[in-house]
Amino acid sequence: MLMKSLSLFALALACAAQAASAAPDDIADSAPSSTYFTQAPNKPIPEGSNWYTSAELGAISTSGNTSGTSVTGKIDARHEMNNWSNEYIATGYFKEDEIANDDGSRSRTRSAQRYSLSAKAAYKLLEDGNRAFVLGSHVNDKFGAYTRYSSMSVGYGTQLLRREDKTVDVEVGPGVFHGVNSAGGTEAGMTVRGAAQLRWRVSPSAAFSQTVSVERGTSNMHSIAETSLSTKINGTMQMKAAFSARNDTNVPEEKKNTDTQTSLTLVYSF
């Protein structure tokens, strides 16, 4: 698995270098890529509002001594208005493996299945880059430490750094969560959520993003981190290599604290 992850990132870096020398287009002209962050695009908002939507898909199929299929996908829809900036994200991931049974036959079994939904409404405050937001999210993970995890938070966000090629955004606020772990236990309580995102335009056609969010609850600390590199193929298509990690401090004994995923996907923006 480590060698596969390194190979994916090596391929993405090679494509980034090639795209940087071949494509003069500015990646900032496309809608920004984010997770739980709503950022105004660099273009003016036509007639008071506009939608920025991206869809990404990646799939791996193997056969021979090892057979299986894995698919990951994401839809990110952003609605920009004069006073509001709203974002809706849906993601999915599943993996099937072909196994040999005791009688010599072979069958396929699901080894990973995760879906997540989130919706966020951010009100733009008077000072540029500041916002008040409400965020709700739900994760259904059949094989995870928490099979269901829902949270809602409110808070304040601001842009700490804004340069031509870099931005840093942070958010903080209280919230509530409700989770069901793999042992069937139910947990609920108050949380304090903090999040940060770095976006760096590496070249006219490549962008790097690092996002971290942490929810500190009464019985568990839930954190998500994603590192990604996107390279522009043309005006609407990008290739994205990403590594994400989900961590829970309080999990059943038979489960690990951290789940990771390495992906290489095509992203279509419209």
Rank of each mutant, 00 (worst) to 15 (best):
37 F>T: 09
245 A>N: 06
261 Q>S: 12
198 L>S: 08
207 A>W: 00
20 A>V: 09
247 N>D: 10
36 Y>Q: 14
125 L>D: 09
170 V>K: 02
11 L>P: 03
214 V>S: 12
173 G>H: 05
73 G>R: 04
72 T>L: 05
175 G>A: 12
109 T>E: 14
119 A>R: 03
30 S>A: 15
126 L>F: 02
150 S>E: 10
127 E>C: 04
13 L>K: 07
104 G>E: 08
249 T>Y: 00
32 P>E: 06
174 P>C: 07
190 M>A: 14
259 D>W: 00
204 P>T: 11
41 P>R: 02
50 N>R: 15
36 Y>R: 15
246 R>D: 14
9 F>K: 04
248 D>L: 06
3 M>F: 00
43 K>V: 07
9 F>Q: 12
150 S>W: 01
85 S>G: 14
13 L>D: 11
250 N>W: 00
95 K>I: 02
252 P>V: 12
221 M>W: 02
101 N>H: 04
257 N>Y: 00
60 I>R: 05
8 L>T: 14
253 E>P: 03
137 S>Y: 01
140 N>V: 03
105 S>I: 05
187 E>I: 13
99 I>M: 04
149 Y>G: 04
55 A>E: 09
202 V>T: 14
178 H>W: 10
183 A>W: 03
175 G>E: 10
218 T>I: 14
205 S>I: 14
111 S>M: 02
154 V>T: 14
22 A>M: 09
264 L>D: 05
142 K>E: 13
